[in-house]
């Protein structure tokens, strides 16, 4: 990745009169950490990076903005927001466009072809985190860890994130400006995680999820990080009526997790953020991917590919399968 070009382009975009700010990635506060960057002027574009550590899907920030009521006489700043996206992130943008969650003329999309990200948890486990800044770059056949002035080559399979091993769309599906040449899509692996649960019998599956949901602390980081969870009024926050009790027990935890998963059926673009941020290590990706596959197999629908598509849940075809209706 040519970082100079990325920063130069970002600086040009931010300098435009019709752009409010640009959201990209920057080095985090220590070690391998990367943080979202909100760039408001051309100079700050110099802190932007793109590396195998830029796992975070920044599309969530498009709908996360909270606005204060404006003082009388003040006009809202409705300039565009510029956003850097990888392949999976761009699918979130496309799906938001499908759902009319954002307006096309209010975003500037800087697409970056993605050779695959590292799994931050695997990285921390295998190459302990350090206080001193550390970095990772791509090499021809994997990754190179750079720290304390030393370079360590790591095979791609060792650290590649699960979502990337399963990825079919490494190149942005929607963009205004493309940064870099498209990468060649790789053969996605079999989804062993989903198969592992599918291969259990009903009781086994129930026991598996019972065990996982019991660990949930209901911090809602999975919901908040999800670019497709953007209801202004979420049933989980409703106090009257209190649809899902805040009590942390298996029943309520299950109600929450199942509601979250079902609301994402035919909408989840498989960016894996929910699983990455879960402090209880619940494999939420398995749940989402299972539902995504059901929708794909039964209806031939894949979300976040065509911004002009009809939303899956709002469309009906006379020949839609209905053999599961009792």
């Amino acid at each position: 990745m040519d970082l100079d070009k990325l920063r130069e382009t970002a600086a040009e975009v931010v300098a435009r009169d019709d752009v409010k700010y640009l959201i990209g990635w920057k080095k985090g506060s220590y070690g391998f950490r990367v943080a979202p960057a909100f760039v408001e002027d051309a100079e700050s574009a110099a802190e932007l990076i793109f590396s195998p550590l830029c796992t975070a899907n920044l599309a969530t920030y498009l709908t996360l903005v909270e606005q204060l009521p404006l003082p009388r006489g003040q006009e809202p700043d409705d300039r565009k927001v510029a956003l850097m996206v990888k392949g999976c992130d761009s699918r979130a943008v496309a799906q938001l466009l499908v759902e009319k969650g954002i307006h096309r003329d209010k975003v500037v999309i800087l697409g970056i072809p993605c050779p695959g990200m590292v799994d931050p948890a695997l990285l921390a486990e295998k190459y302990s985190e350090t206080e001193d800044p550390a970095d990772i770059n791509w090499s021809d056949d994997g990754f190179v860890i750079v720290r304390d002035g030393e370079e360590t080559a790591v095979p791609r399979e060792e650290l590649l994130a699960e979502k990337c091993r399963l990825c079919r769309y490494p190149n942005p599906v929607v963009s205004d400006i493309m940064l870099g040449e498209p990468v060649e899509a790789w053969e996605p692996e079999e989804d062993e995680g989903v198969a592992e649960v599918e291969n259990k019998d009903v009781d086994g599956r129930w026991a598996y999820w019972q065990d996982q949901f019991a660990d949930c602390i209901r911090c809602y980081s999975c919901r908040n990080v999800c670019p497709m969870c953007y209801c202004q009024d979420c049933i989980l926050d409703r106090l009257n009526p209190n649809w899902v009790y805040r009590s942390v027990n298996f029943s309520e935890n299950t109600a929450f997790n199942i509601a979250r998963a079902f609301h994402l059926a035919g909408r989840c673009i498989e960016c894996g953020e929910c699983e990455r941020v879960c402090p209880a290590n619940i494999p939420l990706g398995k749940l989402n991917r299972k539902l995504a596959r059901e929708v794909r197999d039964k209806y031939g629908f894949e979300p976040g590919l065509d911004p002009e598509a009809e939303p899956f849940q709002a469309s009906y075809k006379p020949d839609d399968p209905e053999d599961f209706i009792l």
Partner: peptide, 25 residues
């Protein structure tokens, strides 16, 4: 706070955070 997602990770995993709500179920 620009990048904050508004989740409860920092507070729920904080040993000193003690804010609570009382709700009837």
């Amino acid at each position: 706070s620009a990048s904050c997602l508004g989740c409860g990770t920092c507070t729920y995993l904080c040993p000193t955070c003690h804010c609570f709500d009382i709700q009837d179920e």
